[in-house]
C-alpha cells in the first residue's frame, strides 16, 4: 500500500486518535494530528474523524464537535473523509452524512466484537458505543456500506456504516483501527482501510 497523507482530527474528548495513528503507521501511511480549532489547510488524501467522546458528548454526540473550525473547513468532495464512531456521529450532526445516531435500542453501552457484512464478506470488528443506533428516513440504499449481522443497537436496516461516494464521505460505527493486529486476534480492520485506499 502506498504512502497516503492522512489528517486525524482531535477534539477535546477524542480517545481513539493514537489507535488510529498507529493503524495508519501499520499501513505505511503518513499521518498527523489536526487540532479541532485549526482550519484544515494542508492537502490530505484522507481525513479521519476518530472515535471517542468529543466534548464529553454534551448535548449529544458530535453536536458541539460539528461547530469546530476543523469540521467546518473539511474539504468536501475533494478529499476522502472517514468518520469512525464519534466521527460518524459528528458527520451526521454536521449534515455531511444523512441520518442521525440515537441511543442503542436497549440503552446499553455496547462493547463487543461483532460480525459485519462488508463487501460481500462477513468480517469481525469491535463496537464501543452508546449512541450507535442509526436512523434515517428515506436512506439511499446505494449508500449503505456495511450492516450488522446481529443488529445489536437497533439501527434502521441494520446499517453499520454508509458511504456518500459523490462527496467522498464514509461514516461507520465499528472501529477498524482496533482490528489491525494478529496479536489482538482481529485483523479485519485492514480490509476496511484497504477498501478506503482503493476508493481514493
Amino acid at each position: 500500500m502506498s504512502k497516503l497523507k492522512v489528517g486525524i482530527i482531535v477534539f477535546l474528548g477524542t480517545n481513539c486518535e493514537y489507535d488510529t495513528k498507529r493503524a495508519c503507521d501499520f499501513l505505511g501511511w503518513n499521518s498527523e494530528f489536526v487540532w479541532q480549532n485549526d482550519k484544515i489547510q494542508k492537502k490530505y488524501d484522507l481525513i479521519i474523524l476518530p472515535g471517542g467522546f468529543s466534548y464529553g458528548d454534551y448535548i449529544s454526540s458530535g453536536r458541539i464537535a460539528k461547530l469546530s473550525p476543523a469540521v467546518k473547513s473539511l474539504p468536501i468532495g475533494k478529499t476522502m473523509i472517514l468518520g469512525i464512531c464519534n466521527g460518524f456521529q459528528t458527520l451526521c450532526e454536521s449534515k455531511l452524512l444523512p441520518g442521525a445516531l440515537i441511543d442503542n435500542k436497549n440503552i446499553d453501552f455496547i462493547s463487543k466484537v461483532t460480525e459485519i457484512n462488508f463487501q460481500n464478506e462477513l468480517i469481525s470488528l469491535p463496537l464501543a458505543h452508546h449512541q450507535g443506533n442509526y436512523t434515517c428516513k428515506n436512506i439511499d440504499k446505494s449508500q449503505i456500506l456495511m450492516t450488522y449481522q446481529n443488529n445489536e443497537n437497533g439501527s434502521d436496516f441494520a446499517i453499520a456504516g454508509i458511504y456518500d461516494k459523490k462527496n467522498k464521505i464514509i461514516g461507520m460505527m465499528p472501529h477498524p483501527e482496533r482490528a489491525m493486529y494478529e496479536e489482538l486476534g482481529l485483523t479485519d480492520g485492514r480490509k476496511v482501510f484497504k477498501f478506503i485506499q482503493n476508493e481514493i
Binding site: 448535548i59 458541539i64 461547530l67 450532526e93 441520518g99 442521525a100 440515537i102 436512523t135 434515517c136
Partner: peptide, 9 residues
C-alpha cells in the same frame, strides 16, 4: 436550531 436540537430526530 443549530446547537440544542437536530432537526432529523
Amino acid at each position: 436550531q443549530d446547537i440544542l436540537s437536530n432537526e432529523v430526530i
